[in-house]
Computed example of a mutant assay.
Amino acid sequence: MGTLFYGSQGTPIDINDRALSHIKVVIVAKLRRGEAFTLSLQHEGSGGRSTVWLSPAIPLRFAFEESQRPELNAQWIEELAESANLLGGITLVPERLDRE
C-alpha cells in the first residue's frame, strides 16, 4: 500500500502502489504546468469518498511500499489524465486490462 502525503501536516492518504504510480504521472504533469485540480478517491471498506485540492503551492509526497516501479498502463494514464481535465478533477477509476 502506497501513501500520498498531502499538505503541510503531511496528511497520509493510502492508495495501492499500482494506482498511486499511475496517478503520480498525471499529478506531476499537471503540477509542472502550474495547474490546480481535485483528486477524488473512494474509501476502501467504508464506502465513503474524499476529494482533495491539489495545487503547486501545497506540499505533496508520494511513498511506495514496493521498491520497483510497476509497468505502467498507458490507457489507464490516459483515462486518468482525461478525468483530470474535467470539472470534477482526477477520479481514480479502476484499471481496465483490455489494452486495445
Rank of each mutant, 00 (worst) to 15 (best):
N16C: 12
E71K: 13
G88T: 11
S8F: 06
R32K: 15
T51A: 14
H22V: 07
S83K: 02
A36F: 05
D17K: 06
Q42C: 03
R49P: 00
F62C: 03
P59G: 06
T11M: 03
T38D: 13
P94S: 07
Q42R: 13
L92T: 10
R49T: 03
W53C: 09
E35T: 02
L92M: 13
E79Y: 04
S40K: 05
M1E: 09
F37A: 00
N85Q: 12
L54K: 00
L31Q: 12
L41H: 05
L20Q: 04
V28T: 03
H22R: 09
L39K: 01
A57E: 13
R32H: 13
K30M: 15
E71A: 15
I27R: 00
K30D: 11
T91C: 05
I58C: 05
K24Y: 09
G2H: 07
M1P: 02
I23P: 00
N16K: 02
W53F: 14
Q68T: 02
G10C: 08
T51Y: 05
E95I: 09
V26L: 09
E79P: 00
I13Q: 01
G10S: 09
K24G: 02
G89E: 03
G88S: 14
L87F: 11
R69Y: 07
A84G: 13
A19W: 05
Q75F: 08
S40I: 03
S21C: 15
S46V: 08
V28P: 00
V52C: 04
L86R: 08
K24D: 08
R69C: 07
